[in-house]
Structures are given as C-alpha cells and as structure tokens.
Write a protein that binds this DNA or RNA. Structure first.
Length: 567
RNA sequence: GCCCUUGUAGCUUAAUGGAUAAAGCAGGACUCUUCUAAGGUCUUGAUGGGGGUUCGAUUCCCUCCGGGGGCACCA
C-alpha cells in the first residue's frame, strides 16, 4: 500500500529526496502520512506548511479518482492521507484472492545461507539456543517470503575444550554405570550434562586435572586414543540424536550441518597458507587487530590446535565452496561480537568476497532473574524442560469450548507452548537481552503468542459455523469502522513483511501481528457476523474473516509459529 | 584501565529525526440467555541527570550516573 502512495507522490518530489510514508499512531492524522514536505521546505527555504498545502493540492488532482477520501496538509508540515472506502475495498479484494499475500520477489534467484542454533554436542540445549533457533528460523522464513532460496545451516561444536571436559567427566564413571543402548536419550543427555559439569569444575579447581583435560583435548583432535574415541563417538551420537528431537519440536529443518572438527582442519590450512597476515607470538599464531582498532586474537594455539577464530575462517570458506551463496548470515549471541569483528577483518584480508557477503547478526542473551545461566554449575534451563513446563501450565488454561480429542489437545498444547516461547523472544528487538522469568515472560494473554493463535482459532471457528454459506469477496458492503479498520490493517501486511526482512527484525512483524489481532478481536466483539439479516453482508464479512485468518496464519508462519484451528 | 552495548509507566517491551511517546502485565471500574471471556470496553501511570545540534530529539553528539558484555591461546 505504501508503494502506491509513494508512486503518487514521486512526481512532485525532486529526485534524491527520500520519500517516507508511514502509518500514524493517531487515527486523526490519517491512514497514511508523509513528512516529505518538511524535507522539501528545508531544502527550498520555504514555510513547511505552505509546501505541504501545495503538495496536498497537487496530489488530490493527480491521484486516480476516488483513490483518496481526503488529503490534508497540517502543521507543522505533514501531509495526511485518508484512503477512500473504494480503495480499501478494492485492495482488500486483491488480498483476499492472493494465497501468498505478503510474499515478494525482491530476493528471487538469490541463495542465502542462514546459520543458527549452533549447539555444542556433549552439552545441553538451553534456552539461549532457543533464542538463536527462533531468530534464525524466522530470518530464514523472511528470506523465503522474499523469494530467496534459503539454506539453513547448523554449526555444531563437536571438538574443543568443552568436549574434553565432558569426556574427562565420562571417564570418572565406571563402565557399568554408563548409559547403554536401552537407556533413553534423556537419560543419556542427563549423564553427559553431569559429566560436563564435573569436568568443568575440576578444570578450574584442580591444576592436575586441567592438564589431563588439555591432554584429552589433543587426543580428541588426533583421534589417537581408542578409549577416548569410544567415549567421544558415543557422546557425539547421543547429542546429535537428541538435538534432532528438539529441532523437530521447534519446526526447524536444517539443510546442512557443519562441525568444528572439519572446520578446524580447513581453518588450519587457511591460516598456514596466509601466514603473511598472522604473526607468531609465544608459540601461538595470532592476528594483530590493533592496527584496525581491534584487539589481538589467537587463531592457532601453542599446541598447534585451531581456536574458534581459525575454525570460523575454515567454515566460512567452506560455505561458499559448497553453495553458490549471494549472502551468508550468522546468528549468534552478542557475547562474541568483538571476536567476530577481528574474525571479519582477517577474513576481509584473506577472502574479501566472502567477508563482503557475510553478516554477523547478534542477539541478546537470555538471562535468568538470578543472573547468567551457567552449564558449569548446572544453573541452566534446558530447551526441553522449558517446553514441557509451559505445556503443564497450559493444560489448566485449555478451553472446554474447543471440543478437542485427547490427542488434538496434546498437539494444541505443544503448538501453543512453542508459540508462547517463540513470541516472547521475537516480540522485542534482536540484540536486546531478555530477562527470562518463567511466570512473567511467558504470558498467555495480551501481547503474546497464544493471543495471536487464539484469535486465529476464533476466526476459523466462525468459518466452520458458517457451514456452506458462500463467501463474497467484493467488499462494497464493508462500511462499519471496525471492519474498515481491520481491512486497513490487513493492507499493511506486505509493507511490514518487507520492513521486517530489510531490518532483520522479526519483532516488527510480531508487533504488527498483535495489532492486526487486536483489530480482528475488536471487529469480532462489535460485529455479530453470522447474525446479520442481510445475507450478502454475511457473505462479505465471512470473506473478511477468511482473509484476516489467512494473513494471521502467514504471519505466524514467518515467526515460526503454527496456527491451530481450535484451541 | 580500554572497547562495545544499554537505560522509556511498578514490571516486560514498542516507537525509518516528526504530531498528544504505543502496547501487554500488574492496579481500579465494567462486560458471557449472542459466532471460543486465552476476548472486549473504560481508567491510573514513563523517555536516568545535565549540556549541545535541529524548525522538531526516546532517536544524533558531548558529559556524568547506573546496568550488561568483551579485552590472546574456551566457544
């Protein structure tokens, strides 16, 4: 919708002047508004209101007949637009006939890799990984909605000190106490979690254990010790199987799995073949970032093993070798933001083309009210336990009106649990920390995932109750303010999708969907849809309900949430 | 100490340099013989302090105060 208004404005604005059209918060300022007159006035040294007035007059003359109901210039120099009913009705008709409303072709033909979640085998998936997964999946879906071919990648840390710590912990357990084939994945993961915590605290508190763990780390890379290989292979396999069960619950399907073990090899090669960029220092190979305003980082440690930085070099080279990427996005927590700057600078010197197309998208941390989570002390909330806890809480909320079988009920609970968690992450700007408090962060009412899902279910319920009443999608009978307001909200959807994609901000879409749902609920409350004596009007309103539900469903999909038919 | 980041209502969050700062929760008042009350309606309440740039600042700059993260062989 914005584009239509901008194209009407364009002829009256000199090239080079940015034209912005927005939807004002206050209804009294029009359906859409622009501040371009104030920009022009500034450049032309005229009174803003005079320019705005002049612009408003020109627009009214040049716009298609009946497009606007009113165009008004208002102090200090805004031009406000009111769409005519006819425009709203016609645009809504287009929306109602478009199964893929909101989709665009702005990224058509482009291949984009989005890397996210990035858990570490031998450790648990905690709620921080939920954050990366939720944001990464939504970014992926925004790209897909824009027509891009998206490759979802997951980079899992199957080597490194954390693995050595876990293996040391596993070694402390006698063979008969190790989980066997018959044990559940959950039991195996609990065992690994404990092993890691044990190794981790011993590493910090016992110097001799620290040395032993470092030795294990070297043996893992070299695969030189059969007992360690055995523990390693078992633990890695358990972890990966367990991760899959969580990805499935969350609705993510990865196209490619990268592992640190392979990236490490590639990274060593890259560093060794570009030694002119690096420097030897205390037996390690480092990149001196100071000359670029950054700091020095170790890429290969004094034992000759690649660190995180070298692995990333190998990884990113590999990504572009394997796929014809136009763009590569890496979603991680913001704790590694400074490392990434150093990494990107080194990458720029070695693979300028890769660096240019790579974006590090960092998100905030999920913190507990008590402070930072730590898997070392066991003070973590795992992804699974959170999902399960939310499910238990939800059972009490279930409506008895929904008329669901036991199995349907469980599916709905799972769908809403995921929705509640994902929405609580996506509703705020990426980059901000989330203070995660189970009772207050996961709301089921108000500005929440379940609110959106509930709104959808109510709309679908009307459509079911309508039975075989035919829908009619010419919207000439639409005239109440509640239904027109809802219609206008629907027309904003494509703009919001585009904005969310451009800004890497699913939160923009989440905020919009809440407003859409709010308009839908207001319409629902004020308008007895099926009780009208005018059959034509029922038919038209049903089409509005159907369109609203569809837009909600598409929007929820982009956020990675499902839209249950009944709640 | 240096670098990055952040401070909006009692709480959790919105707001491409624009208009009377927007929601949800919590608090107060209403609302189910009517399509799902996880809903709707009304209501109380906020930009950390001080400067500056601008016609206009929550937004940009400086400074002070308070959070968070990072500062070479972990990721």
């Amino acid at each position: 919708m914005k584009d239509s208004i901008i194209s009407i404005l364009k002829p009256f604005v000199p090239d080079g002047t940015p034209v912005d059209v927005s939807v004002p918060e206050q209804g009294s300022f029009g359906h859409y508004s622009t501040n371009v007159a104030m920009r022009l006035a500034n450049a032309e040294k005229k009174a803003p209101l005079v320019v705005a007035d002049d612009l408003a007059g020109k627009i009214m003359k040049s716009a298609p007949a009946d497009f606007f109901e009113k165009v008004e210039a208002v102090a200090p120099g805004f031009v406000n637009f009111w769409l005519s009913k006819k425009t709203i009705q016609e645009e809504l008709q287009k929306a109602s006939r478009n199964e893929h409303y909101g989709a665009s072709e702005s990224m058509k033909g482009k291949t984009v890799m989005v890397e996210f979640t990035d858990p570490n085998p031998f450790k648990l998936l905690h709620i921080g990984h939920l954050m990366s997964n939720t944001i990464g999946e939504s970014i992926s879906r925004l790209y897909e909605t824009s027509g891009a071919n998206v490759i979802r990648a997951n980079y899992q840390g199957d080597v490194g000190l954390h693995v050595a710590k876990a293996i040391w912990g596993m070694e402390q357990t006698s063979k008969e106490n190790m989980p066997g084939e018959e044990d559940s994945l959950a039991a195996k993961m609990e065992f690994l979690g404990k092993a890691y915590a044990l190794g981790s605290s011993a590493y910090e508190n016992q110097p001799e254990t620290k040395a032993a763990i470092i030795e294990i780390n070297e043996k893992i890379y070299a695969r030189s010790d059969s007992r360690i290989n055995e523990l390693y292979d078992a633990g890695r396999a358990w972890s990966l199987a367990y991760f899959e069960t969580v990805y499935k619950r969350l609705g993510t399907k990865f196209n490619h799995y990268f592992f640190e073990s392979e990236a490490g090899k590639d990274g060593l090669e890259v560093v060794h073949s570009h030694l002119e960029i690096f420097k030897e220092s205390d037996g390690a190979i480092v990149f001196q970032g100071e000359q670029y305003g950054l700091h020095t980082r170790v890429f290969i440690n004094s034992k000759g093993l690649p660190t995180y930085e070298a692995k990333e070099l190998g990884l990113n080279k590999k990504k572009f070798e394997l796929y014809p990427l136009d763009f590569s996005v890496i979603v991680t927590g913001n704790e590694i933001i400074d490392y990434f700057k150093v990494l990107l600078k080194a990458m720029e010197l070695i693979f300028p083309d890769v660096a240019k197309k790579t974006l590090h998208l960092s998100h905030g941390m999920l913190r507990l009210p008590s402070g930072k989570m730590s898997s070392r002390t066991g003070d973590v909330i795992t992804a699974e336990s959170l999902l399960d806890q939310v499910g238990i809480k939800l059972k009490e909320y279930m409506s008895d009106k929904a008329d669901l079988s036991e199995q349907e009920k469980n599916e709905v609970i799972e769908s809403i649990s995921v929705g509640a968690i994902k929405y609580s992450i996506l509703r705020q700007n990426p980059g901000q920390d989330i203070i995660f408090d189970f009772d207050t962060s996961l709301s089921f009412d108000g500005d929440s995932g379940p609110y959106l899902q509930y709104t959808y279910a109510r709309l679908r319920s009307i459509l079911r109750k309508a039975g075989d009443v035919k829908m009619k999608s010419d919207f000439e009978l639409l005239e109440d303010e509640a239904e027109l307001a809802l219609a206008r909200k629907i027309l904003e959807f494509p703009d919001m999708v585009a904005q969310a994609q451009a800004r890497y901000a699913p939160s923009a879409l989440a905020t919009y969907l809440h407003r859409l749902a709010s308009a839908a609920n207001h319409f629902y409350e004020t308008t007895p849809i099926l009780a009208d004596e005018n059959k034509e009007r029922i038919a038209v309103r049903l089409a509005l309900v159907e369109t609203t539900a569809r837009v909600l469903k598409i929007g929820l999909w982009i956020l990675g949430m499902s839209a249950p038919e009944k709640i």
